[in-house]
Design a protein around this nucleic acid. Structure first.
Lengths: 220, 220
DNA sequence: ATTCTATTCTAGTATTCTATTGAATTGTTT
DNA sequence: AAACAATTCAATAGAATACTAGAATAGAAT
């Protein structure tokens, strides 16, 4: 009781600590490398090796970044055989990432500019936004991510055909529908590469701007 | 064309720049002082002086922090007479703040702990969550923030009675209903102070855990 | 038990950023 | 011109950053 009195916080001290705590977590996410890691592992558990390869970091460095995220409990790990798999600790982590990304897209036009520039450089056609096509039934939804990511969760009625199997299994794609590809999200080019391939084979193909995690209509 | 080729970005370069851009914006928000500023001015435009007072910073320092936010276009300013009023540049900024706050509340129990400790120290009763009371019609919703914040936007059916006018105008509060006070949000103690006052006058009063901005049922 | 392999830790470095404040300055109002 | 709010400047001290190489660890496979 008495000791409670002494420890008792005034309101200013509480605020200082509360905002500092939120600040700590914000700083833990705030490096480019860690933002990219979060964007990546949101699609499913990944080993340190995969994360390092995807983000072009060396392994020790990727591990360091993962420790920073783990210290703040933003990611969790599971071990399978020899590998440690990292994934997001909660949905809230993804919401933060998503809101930061959307804020940036609205606030500084640079990212969207760079994105279209990059697409132009590769002669990739403009993406289609989900809002414009979600009602239609003359489209064929194609998930070109690795199988395990598809199985963890996919868009409703989507068919899985990972990018590297695309050439072999073209026959499962109908020629009378518009093929809509999608992948991990706005900053992932798998869907664009798929579109290029499909168009070169005479399909009517476009990519979806959003990824699975940005859209409500999902399975699982 | 040619020059486009040379400037053309490869995918890795795009990613580096995109995540770096998001990182820049994230770092701009990530200090405790700036998080508090955002939380504060979300309720309405505030002068530098008010912001400095609220956050216990000196004026020069508060201004510095505001410049950081302005450089990243997270806040906007209007001038009235001698004063410059700062407010959030867009709703997205608030969403980011909200998602960071909610992530922290879920991820590290410290903040909630400190909050209840502080309330205990002042012998403030436990808050009520909106979800539990929003259907009921035997409650009297009381907005104890300054008038201008109320006018900018309030909860549906709420009555405005700023904290410092409360003692004078007690007669407008019905005695047969439960009085529910609310203010700027979870880290604001105005509503708690109002509850203490009201309870001492024999009212059945509780505070709402959430603030206006966390609840859907609002006017304006 | 040993070997193997993926991951983590340690330590060091160089760099960059941080918040803060008093004083000088700008710009507005009266 | 005087008063006032806000901004900028300059300087400080301290902390945090990302990264890397090499050693250490911890499980799994043999």
């Amino acid at each position: 009781m008495q000791s409670n009195r002494y420890k008792a916080m005034d309101k200013r001290a509480f605020k200082d600590q509360a905002y500092t705590e939120i600040s700590r977590i914000t700083k833990a996410l705030s490096g480019p490398a860690r933002l990219e890691i979060i964007d990546f592992i949101a699609n499913g558990p990944k080993s340190v090796e995969e994360i390092a390869r995807q983000t072009a970091l060396n392994i020790a460095n990727a591990s360091q970044h993962l420790q920073v995220l783990r210290k703040e409990r933003l990611v969790k790990t599971t071990r399978k055989g020899n590998f440690v798999y990292y994934s997001l600790a909660s949905e809230e982590v993804y919401y933060v990432w998503k809101s930061l990304r959307d804020l940036t897209l609205n606030t500084s036009p640079i990212v969207s500019q760079l994105l279209t520039e990059t697409r132009n450089a590769y002669e990739i056609p403009e993406p289609v936004v989900w809002e414009d096509v979600k009602g239609r039934n003359d489209v064929f939804l194609l998930d070109v991510r690795p199988k395990d990511e598809f199985e963890k969760g996919s868009m409703a009625n989507a068919v899985s055909l990972p990018l590297d199997e695309l050439t072999d299994k073209l026959d499962i794609i109908p020629r009378d529908k518009m093929v809509l590809t999608y992948c991990r999200g706005m900053f992932c080019f798998y869907a664009d590469e798929a579109v290029q391939l499909l168009q070169s084979k005479g399909y009517n193909a476009r990519r979806l701007e959003e990824g699975v995690l940005d859209v409500k209509e999902t399975d699982k």
